[in-house]
Amino acid sequence: MAPLLEVQNLKKYFKTNRGMLHAVDDVSFTLDAGKTLGVVGESGCGKSTLGRTILHLIDSTDGKILFDGRDISNPTRRELSRLRQDMQIIFQDPYSSLNPRMSVSETIMEPLKLRKKFSNQEIAERTKALMDTVGLAERFWNTYPHELDGGRRQRIGIARALALGPKFIVCDEPVSALDVSIQAQILNLMLDLQEQRNLTYIFITHDLSVVKYISDEIMVMYLGQVVEKAPSHELFRSTLHPYSKALLSAIPIPKVDAQRELIPMKGEVTSPINPKPGCRFSARCPYVQDKCHEPQVLEEIMPNHFVSCCRCREINEITESVKGRN
């Protein structure tokens, strides 16, 4: 089966006063229908830009995007209009992602109205069904967003994204602004929807524990590049890249005496403007050597487990190489 989404060497550079900002630099991956790809990284790693570039909310600088077998790198107006039915986005901040001047029903029915092919009655029925799907009671029909809490607001955002029946949704930190008890409600809702509608997600987050819960495959990004990519359970079982290890070790675990060694990381994120050719993590990496300053490749160290680190095998004491695949 062909993958639903294929991204090849995607690049997005922004022009700034100090030079080119490499927000997304040479990212490639494939994603099968009904699966979830988790994209993890700290602020400024380009994960949000990646999601928006795939949706053509931002134009890419270079690279190819294939959706459902079609090349959508440079869509025409009409193609783009079609694509917007199939691809949607859910935002992080349920406070700024809803127009404060539009009621719940107006927000959810807007995409249907814009399509101009439904009668008013049909629109109203579909809106009701959508509200029901995401668990919003009908009494909120004429309510405005500022009267609702974060969880309900996020449900409105989800209903709006579902309105046109998309196949693929980019979820940009959809739960990081919510309290834990509400966060769990929304995560469960998203999983239910995925099962019912065979949705494909790209789940962007900085929270590794959330991503583990929801993703089939995880991609760790650092300063615009993919440093590690592996199936979810595999990544947590054997984390190979020094950055992923540090990231994992930094998560506070809600358990007493959960003694874990904090992997030291020097300094803070360096600038993504005009980066040097070598490994971008080298400035903070505890294992840095001279060869790290040469360009790195994303290599399949174990089956389906890709790492971009020239010292990966040494550090993790892996001797065998992947055979039978190319």
Binding site: V180, S181, I182, Q183, A184, Q185, L187, N188, L191, L208, S209, V210, K212, Y213, I214, H233, F236, L248, I251, I253, P254
Partner: peptide, 17 residues
């Protein structure tokens, strides 16, 4: 609160919000 946390060490099928 504990039940609604996604846990790194165990895999849960569904969270209990």
């Amino acid at each position: 609160l504990f039940d609604s946390l996604p846990n790194l060490d165990e895999s849960k099928k569904r969270l209990k919000p």
